[in-house]
Amino acid sequence: MSGIVLPRRQLIARAGGLVAAAGALPLLSGCDAINEAPAVRKILSMGEEMHRASQRALTDRDALAREFTRADLSPVFRPNGTRLPEGEAYAAHAARGFADWRVAVTGLVARPLSLSMADIRAMPQRSQITRHDCVEGWSAIGEWTGVQLSRVLAAAGLKDSARYIVFRCADRIGDADYYESCDLVDALHPQTILAWALNRQLLPIANGAPLRLRIERQLGYKHAKYLSAIEAVASLDGIGAGKGGYWEDRVDYEWYAGI
């Protein structure tokens, strides 16, 4: 969940025309007007689609992200995004050590589930030492332990009509809950896990306690923290603003964050 992006953008976008006209630097404002033009944004979004399509088409869909050794770990694994979800409900869960935390698995599944942290830890576990790449440019290496998402989805019985997996989070930024989504290629990838431990310790709150997604071939903001629900859907329409994630909806981050 890396992304310190000012949520002022929409406001600025609306005022953009006025600012551009009144700007002290007409040339630069002209550039910004180009940046805001819907047709330009549409063309620019083709670049993302080309990256996604070419990576899916030309690269091995099951290729594993590099796994490191403990000698390679970052001395400090930097948290980013929400570091402490607001609200009494989360605070109460944290005070009880997340003993009553549940993760709902719903949507296009044959057997909806409600998993406790004990249920999740009772399933077969995977540990992986991987590099976390923030969209901002920094990287940190950490050791993650958790259950493969594919096992959870298999237990729930993913229906054939499911195309995407949506991850609901307990943290709210501004006026909306954080959420993310991915396609089934990444959802069923062996390194995509629901992690409850970082560097062999229980996941710290700043890093997403009690449970976060690890989706190792994409950038940090896809790795949803404070997971409360997992939903299988046929389409991302109607979820949030329909772009598949909190930052995607708000500032136009790429939905496919493999680049």
């Binding site: 992304g3 992006v5 000012l6 953008r9 600025i12 630097l25 630069l28 404002s29 550039c31 910004d32 940046n35 944004r41 063309i43 620019l44 979004s45 083709m46 670049g47 993302e48 080309m50 990256h51 969209v135 901002e136 930052w247 500032v251 136009d252 981050y253 790429e254 680049i259």
Partner: peptide, 24 residues
């Protein structure tokens, strides 16, 4: 500074859109 960047105001998301498209 803003005169050196696209767009002029801070937007990592928009900077990436331009960068990743023009990289093609």
């Amino acid at each position: 500074p803003s005169w050196a960047t696209i767009p002029t105001r801070y937007s990592l998301a928009d900077g990436r859109r331009w960068h990743l498209s023009f990289a093609w």
